[in-house]
């Protein structure tokens, strides 16, 4: 949906308040996101190597248990009320890794707990994270089709 057009008065107000508003700390935010996101991936690498060394996974198959472990940890941190604090500090650094997906699922479910297990927790589980699955599946389907058609012709 297109943004509503601003009236000249609204446009003037927007210009006027610009110098009075707090500046977004772009560099600091980007640095914090880099550190937090990098650290989560580093832990992921450690977990992955753990599965390869002790459980006979290969580098290719270790991805699944690694992701599941990270999701478990992130869900627990959400339950203990810690992940939202990490999120305030790390921004995209804790949203982009798969732990952010787990946090979106768990936090939405926890928020609606007071409405019951079926209509509260279960129906709201994907309230925030559902968009990721929808866009992932749709784009994978479209690109998969394109690639399949191209392969048939080549």
């Amino acid at each position: 949906m297109a943004k509503k057009k601003l009236t000249p008065e609204q446009q003037a107000y927007k210009e006027k308040i610009k110098p009075l508003q707090p500046k977004t700390p772009y560099v600091l935010n980007a640095f914090k996101a880099f550190m937090v996101g990098g650290f989560i991936c580093l832990i992921g690498q450690g977990i992955s190597n753990f599965y390869i060394t002790f459980f006979n996974f290969t580098e290719k198959t270790a991805g699944n248990p690694t992701v599941a472990t990270l999701i478990l940890v992130a869900s627990l941190l959400t339950g203990f009320g810690v992940y939202d604090k990490i999120g305030q500090f790390g921004g995209a650094g804790s949203i982009v890794p798969v732990t952010g997906f787990a946090n979106a699922v768990t936090s939405a479910a926890l928020e609606h707990k007071s409405e019951g297990i079926v209509l509260g927790i279960a129906t709201n589980l994907f309230k925030l994270a559902g968009a990721v699955i929808v866009f992932g599946a749709v784009s994978a389907y479209v690109i998969g089709m394109l690639r399949y058609i191209i392969q048939q012709f080549l």
Binding site: Y26, A33, C41, G91, A92, G93, I95
Partner: peptide, 14 residues
């Protein structure tokens, strides 16, 4: 892993 993962998150933050 740290640097590449961090960079992807950095793009996200921007």
């Amino acid at each position: 892993a740290f640097v590449v993962g961090g960079l992807i998150c950095l793009i996200g933050q921007l």
